[in-house]
Computed example of a mutant assay.
Amino acid sequence: MPHPLIPDLERLVCPLAEASGLAVQGVEIQAQRLPLTLVVQIRHADGRDVNLDDCAAFSGVLGEVVEASELMPQAYVLEVSSPGIGEELLDDRDFHSFRGFPVAVCFRDGKDAETTREGLLLERDAEHLQLNLRGRISRIPRSDVISVRLVTPTTG
């Protein structure tokens, strides 16, 4: 269950990021840590990854705004970072970046049962997701795809 302050923090963080040419990829409070940690993940608005200098610059600006808002009256650590590479492929950028990588695709087959196939990601277009399954091309209708996750390559 997300922390109850997340929506208020997102309303504070998103316009600030947008004004800085950034896009917020996630806001999380890690309450199990002492002091608790406010994690904000950012990218450039055009989809490029951020570097350490970008994170440090935004952290300074964001820290001042969060302090002034008094949303976080207790002690906390502010952590601004890039979302990095997620295990699940979500957007066009991910599918383009990981062409040729091994993936597991969970999808609905013709009988509405969930099926998983592992292969090398070839392409995702408006209609299909294409995998290389040991040299054979498999086309899965995009509307049937439930999830696509990076996997560790298997040998053999």
Rank of each mutant, 00 (worst) to 15 (best):
G84L: 13
L22T: 01
S143Q: 10
A17R: 06
V50T: 15
P15C: 05
L22Q: 02
V24Q: 02
L90M: 10
L129G: 07
E64L: 15
V105T: 02
A17G: 10
F98L: 10
N51P: 03
P73N: 04
P141Q: 01
V65C: 11
L133V: 13
R124P: 04
E18Y: 03
V40N: 08
V13Q: 03
G100E: 01
R134S: 14
L36T: 08
C55Y: 04
D91N: 14
G63R: 12
V145P: 13
L12W: 01
L34V: 10
T152I: 14
F58C: 08
T37I: 12
G47A: 04
A75S: 14
H44Q: 15
H3P: 08
I146P: 08
V148M: 11
E67T: 13
G86F: 11
T37G: 02
R43K: 14
P35G: 05
L16V: 09
E118V: 10
G135T: 01
I42T: 11
E70D: 15
V39Y: 00
V27E: 08
D112R: 12
P141K: 00
H3Q: 03
F58T: 01
M72T: 13
R134C: 09
D91R: 02
L5G: 00
S147R: 12
D49L: 10
S138M: 11
A68G: 03
V66M: 14
L22I: 06
L133R: 01
D54Y: 02
V40M: 08
H44C: 08
A57F: 08
